[in-house]
Nucleic acid binder design. Sequence first.
DNA 1: TTTTTTATTGACTGATCAGTCAATTAAAGG
DNA 2: CCTTTAATTGACTGATCAGTCAATAAAAAA
Lengths: 180, 180
Amino acid sequence: MRRAALVAATVEEIGEAGTLDVTVGQIARRAGMSSALAHHYFGGKAQIFLAAMRHIQSEYAAEVRRCLQQAEPGKRLEALISANFAPICFAPATVSAWLNFYVLAQSDKDAARLLQIYQKRLHSNLVHALRGRCAAPEQVAEVLAAQIDGTYLRAALAGESINGAEEAVLLAAKALMETS
Amino acid sequence: MRRAALVAATVEEIGEAGTLDVTVGQIARRAGMSSALAHHYFGGKAQIFLAAMRHIQSEYAAEVRRCLQQAEPGKRLEALISANFAPICFAPATVSAWLNFYVLAQSDKDAARLLQIYQKRLHSNLVHALRGRCAAPEQVAEVLAAQIDGTYLRAALAGESINGAEEAVLLAAKALMETS
DNA sequence: TTTTTTATTGACTGATCAGTCAATTAAAGG
DNA sequence: CCTTTAATTGACTGATCAGTCAATAAAAAA
């Protein structure tokens, strides 16, 4: 499928360049087609990138479901954190795409809407996972969401030493639950 | 001073656009001069933006010094966190510039170096402030640095509801110190 | 005043790129 | 086999912009 190839090529290209300033031509060439065809299938550059982010988010959502399902009831939070740092979600190119997506969401309405969906879902997942394990799930969820995003940010910049990221978030989570 | 005006205009323009894709012409016009003059003083667009980030970082460093100085020895960490959320450092345009700076640091050598300086200094400040207040200052500093960056990230995207950001980081800091 | 240096700009250039389109090839349907 | 539909592309276009430069104005030095 051409659309799938373009979505994959988009993530790879952005991951390699580290910026959203990749041309449609580059993406199309990597996907093995002409830039005109890319336009034919998606209409424009913005829509190509949004499709790529939707794909990343659906893979993320699937990973979350998978981890939550096979988690014992009292370990939902650990499963949720684990999902965020699964290889599919935490690959350098993926993280780089996220970082650029954040920047885009500041100026692009569609990106902002897509981001809000992710944030709301993460928040509600966190609150649910925290219920019964701390006194103020809402407040702790906010803090933990920032912790996850911040760890992502640093991962995108570190490149290599991504080790310890999940452990860091787990540490914060445990500390927050024990003291609130 | 022309250079100062350009630096200020750069931050404003990026803050308003939410992206690094602002033209030298826009920046120069906001600073009340021609784009040719902007090139005359800085040499190129990249250097204009780097100068703006250096300015932001020097203001930040000054705020950190100020807060640390007037803090009692046992409250260094609180002072450090407070500095990060001072109006000068936490203004929407400033946070937006930071976010774009992060993205740039993925592909630009000079930006990466500048970012590393900031990260190293923040880390060493955190470790110093944590010494004697928890068992594993190094580890906690990593977690807290991510917490601060993540909170910044969310601030750039929230726009309005920046309230509670400092409180969130403080909450995380206290929890981490009590449990490690 | 004259000269030299600095500040300043409008007008260009060269390159890049998103998006279009008419034309070609291939596939599907009848 | 013929026809209709879909896939595919090379070649363009129009616009944008970073960076240059020669020329002018202003200020400083002599």
